[in-house]
Structures are given as C-alpha cells and as structure tokens.
Design a protein around this nucleic acid. Structure first.
Lengths: 218, 218
DNA sequence: TTTAGAAATAATGTCGATACTTTAATGCCA
DNA sequence: TGGCATTAAAGTATCGACATTATTTCTAAA
C-alpha cells in the first residue's frame, strides 16, 4: 500500500531543495541536470515541476522550460503581511472554538519548543528548531477547525520559507531569538485566557518581525 | 510568442469541464477516455491532472489514476465560510486603501451587472451573468492591493464553482435573484461611504446565501 | 560590432515496455 | 449447489527511450 510514484516522490525533494535554497531564485531548472540529480526520467520531473508551478515556486516559459520563481522585497512584504492576517483569523476562530484538548496540545507544543531552545545557539540545528516552532503555531491555529483556512495558511507558510531561511541564518546565535521566546509566552497566555484581541495583536506582530528585519537586508 | 504547450491548453479545458460538472464528482478520469476527448497524449494529460491535484479539484491514487474530487456538505460549508472571511478581509483593506480609480471601477462594474439583469431570467445565460457578478466583486476586492490575498480569494472562488453552479441552476428565474441585486446596491453604498463594518457584514452575508440554500438541497 | 546561417542544446510529445490493479474464471471444500 | 479462495486474463497506469520541434549558442562573413 501507499506505493508512491516517481513524480510524487520527486515533488517532495525538489520542493525542499527550492525552499532550502539549493536552487537559487531565478535558477534555470534543466531537465538534463534534474534527471542526473534525482535519477528519474523527464516525465515524472515534468509532472512535479507542473505542480510546483501551481504552488508558485516555479515558473514555466513555454518551450523554454522551468526556472525557480524569483524573490523580491515586494513579494516578501506581501506574503508576510497576508500571513499575519490569515494567522490572526485562525487564532481568533481557534479561541472561539477551541476545546480543552486544543489547550493541552498548545501547552505541550510550547513546552517542547521551550525545552529545545538550545537549538538556537550559533552552532544549533535551526531547521529542527523551526519545525518545533511551526508545530507550536500550528497547534494554536488548528483550533479554528477549518480545513480550507488551514490549507491557505500552510500554502503561505511554505511560500515564506525561502525568506524565513534567510532570517534564521541571519539571526543564528543572536539575541533576537530571546525576544521571540518571550513573544511565545505572551501568546500562550493570551490564548489560554481567550483574549482574542490581545492574541491577534501578538501573533500579527510576531509574524511580521522577520519581514521587518529582512526588508533592511534585501 | 505565447505558444502554449498541450498541457497548458488541456489544463484550462479539463478544469472548466470539472467545474461545469461535465465530469461528476468522484468520476474516474481514465487516460484512454481523456486522450480521446481532448486529442492529446498521456503526458500532457498527466501534467494537467497533476496541477489539478494541487488545486484540489482532482485526486490521485497511486497506480490507480485520477478521479474528480468528491463534493460534500462539510466541504461546501467550509469553503463558503472561508470565502466569506477572506472576502471580508479584502473588502476591509480595500476600503482603507482604495483610491478614486477603484471607486470608479466599482461603479462601472455595478452598472454593467445591473444593466444585464435580464440574464437572470429563466432562459437567460447564467454563466454570463456570473461572470459579470464575479467581476463586480473583484472590482471591490482588488482595492486591497495584495496579490497573495487576491490569489487565495481566487482559489476559493474556483473551488466553490461546482457548488455555485448548483445554486445558479436552482435559482434560475427565481425571486432569490432580486434579493441578490438589492444586496449589491447596499454593498456599493457601504463601500463608497467607506463604512468598513457595514460592508464586511453585507459581503459576508451575501456570500453565505448560496451556502444556506445548498445545505438544504444536499 | 552586426547579422545570417549552421550546429548544438533543450523542451515537448508519442510510443512501447513494464508493473500494477481489477475483473473474470476456475477449482476447492463444506 | 453455494460460498470462498486462487489464479488467469484483461485493462490501466507509469515510466523511460526516442523522434520531433523549438530555442540558444556558435561561427564567420560583411
């Protein structure tokens, strides 16, 4: 069961490579090179790249192949701005609808994040920390109970990944992460107290921090 | 310039056929049948279907091909609910940010919609009316100025199409459309007066009307 | 430098080989 | 005979190889 076809497998790994910056923004994705790298034929590759086009991570020019979507400051701002609003929406609905299990999951995720703060040191595994970070925020958002909203949220999270990785690297072993941790504590408090306005304000600001930092960098 | 490849062309038409209900929800999409219908080979077809999977209009089961995504009452409710919230977000931002050109475009789109109300009669072209209807609401929403938010909005609009078509057919030549027209007038007033709360409340209710009607039908 | 033509490179689509799934048929046993 | 498992056959999906067509690069003359 669950035998994945080549296209499905290669989609995951190409996507990761693009999000991780293995292929730079604007980079031409030649079939011959991709065939070599992933050891698959052109057909599964074309299927995977077609899907990445829909996800807006890859551009296609007819008869001229595929290339990684470029990044830009205006897109950075737009994505983070939209994420802040969508996440606010999720948090607001989650506070209205969340049950005790939801609360417990948030506390558990917050604990795991806190307990692994050492990952943020200069030589730490930032990607592992980011995974815990994402799981923490997802624990809050999933209380909204809307599959569609959570899908939109995930799309935007992934689209932001290329920019977020720049921020993570820039902040490695930096004091900015201390502030980040404090924001999480405040957010958990506001959420558990069911203070919608406060929680929305906090999450919105929290999401926009990397955007502000990166705007100065780009 | 603009030479489209087969996959790009076939994507549009398969998508339309699914949204229009030519292929029923759950219908198995066999390669042999699709090859025949659209006169293309399996590879362009697989590329197009892969993209429809990302758009969540088609499901893929490994080694078992593709089928049209099923519909359900819970998905209907979720999509319309999320649309109402996203559209509220767009309208709120648009009222904050819209300029005079934006206002003029809204008035123009409203006029066109009003002037073609006859399309709503029992023997009218409902799809043409729906196009004007969509253009009217887009004229309002685009004032939000966020490409990402407008993309999310469009995704949800398209995902709702299969359900919306049921509603359109059900209401053909019906009095429900009169109410609909009134709602548009009220919305334009609220928007031009820059009354965010009122406009958001109106648009939210307006979007949810088909959802309520269809819930009784399904 | 510019430009026309030719060669090389690359993208696209068709076809056929292989592997998997589904259906039909057969045989087994109560 | 009826129910059920096993096996054979038909129908599909998937993928890689090759042929075709388009683009890009190179070359050489003006």
């Amino acid at each position: 069961m669950a035998l994945e076809n080549s296209a499905t497998k290669v989609l995951q790994v190409v996507k990761q490579d693009i999000l991780a910056g293995v292929f730079a923004p604007g980079h031409k994705l030649k079939m011959s090179a991709l065939k070599e790298r992933y050891h698959v034929g052109v057909n599964p590759l074309r299927e995977a790249l077609s899907q990445l086009v829909v996800m807006q991570l890859v551009q296609v020019q007819d008869q001229r192949g595929y290339r990684v979507c470029p990044v830009s400051q205006s897109e950075l701002i737009d994505i983070y701005d939209t994420r802040a609003r969508i996440e606010s929406l999720c948090v607001g609905l989650a506070i209205e609808r969340g049950d005790q299990q939801w609360e417990a999951d948030i506390v558990a995720a917050a604990y795991r994040l806190q307990a692994n703060a050492s990952l943020l040191q200069a030589d730490g595994d930032l990607q592992s920390w980011e995974q815990l970070h994402q799981q923490f925020h997802y624990a809050i958002a999933k209380g909204c109970g809307s599959k569609e909203l959570l899908r939109v949220r995930l799309d935007l999270y992934e689209k932001a990944s290329r920019y977020r990785n720049l921020w993570l690297q820039h902040n490695a072993g930096h004091a900015a992460f201390d502030v980040n941790q404090k924001e999480h504590e405040q957010l958990v408090c506001a959420v558990l107290e069911r203070d919608i306005k406060a929680a929305q304000s906090l999450i919105s600001k929290h999401i926009l921090v990397p955007s502000h930092v990166l705007q100065d960098l780009l």
